[in-house]
Design a protein around this nucleic acid. Structure first.
Lengths: 148, 148
DNA sequence: GAAAGTAGTTCGTATTGCCAACCATTGTCA
DNA sequence: TGACAATGGTTGGCAATACGAACTACTTTC
């Protein structure tokens, strides 16, 4: 097994994921960003502010992304009943269909790529990544509360 | 330990890497794409065609990226001595400095995020990713030779 | 009830990325 | 040798992406 530098491995992996995501998006006539947005919304409507955090985007960038998705009939803006400034982004039927399709297809391909890994390595990989993500989340929270 | 879906884990990890890369780039007044380009060139000059494959970009997109990087004095185009159509993209001193800096800083942060992992998990992660990348490379080669 | 904060939008600008069309050079092969 | 395909890059036009600053509208705080 070739041993590559740890960081390089992560960076290349990220690049690979981007690539798979891009291919799948294109096959469904979506931009990668739109596909990402749809995938994020399959579990239910989300507000703009939360989306900017999840997608790590400036709010004006998100406005544009949602505008274009709405124009294509993939999502709709619904007013939030508790806060009249806020809105919730919700999938249309079309959007939901595409979101699920794209998500499944990406999962299928990533699974195919990881298919050779023995199951226990696979689980370990998932949990190791879970640890990294958790650490990053904690780090982010600490930074926000002034410990950075 | 929270168990997340395998694909989701990979996608989120990719997203995290993107984020770190973006932060570091910005701190050095680079766009993520420029930083990526510089990092790719630290080992020596590379031709446009090879770069399109590595970066998974259309050739015209790469022309633009290199144009802007050249305008900023980060890289230069040198003619290839064996093929008068081709050129090699080479770092300037400035570009090399920034490329190394960015690469080191990204590595530092990824290491920090992975720091809590026990060493054996870390190695496993690296080699598992290596396997995935190798599989993808093989798959790509097979596709190119008509077995896709 | 004024001031400060939060949720989103608008506007202007640079970058990214694709495609089709193109030029120049190199390779093929009849 | 000389046409013709293939390869390496560029150009031009276009849509999408992303940022920052300025703005509106609503909510919270004091």
């Amino acid at each position: 097994m070739i041993t590559i530098q740890f960081t390089d491995a992560l960076v290349r992996l990220a690049h690979l994921v981007q690539q798979v995501f891009g291919e799948v998006s294109r096959e469904h006539d979506l931009t990668p960003q739109q596909a990402q947005l749809l995938c994020l919304l399959v579990d239910g409507p989300v507000g703009m502010s939360e989306l900017t955090r999840t997608l790590n985007l400036e709010k004006s960038s998100l406005t544009g992304l949602v505008d274009r998705a709405e124009k294509r009939g993939l999502v709709v803006r619904t007013r939030d009943s508790h806060d009249r400034r806020a809105c919730r982004i919700e999938l249309t039927c079309d959007g939901a269909r595409l979101g699920v399709l794209a998500h499944e297809e990406v999962a299928r391909r990533m699974d195919a790529l990881a298919g050779e890994l023995p199951p226990e390595q696979r689980d370990l990989l998932a949990s190791a990544i879970g640890g990294i993500l958790a650490r990053h989340a904690a780090r982010g929270a600490a930074t926000l509360s002034g410990q950075g």
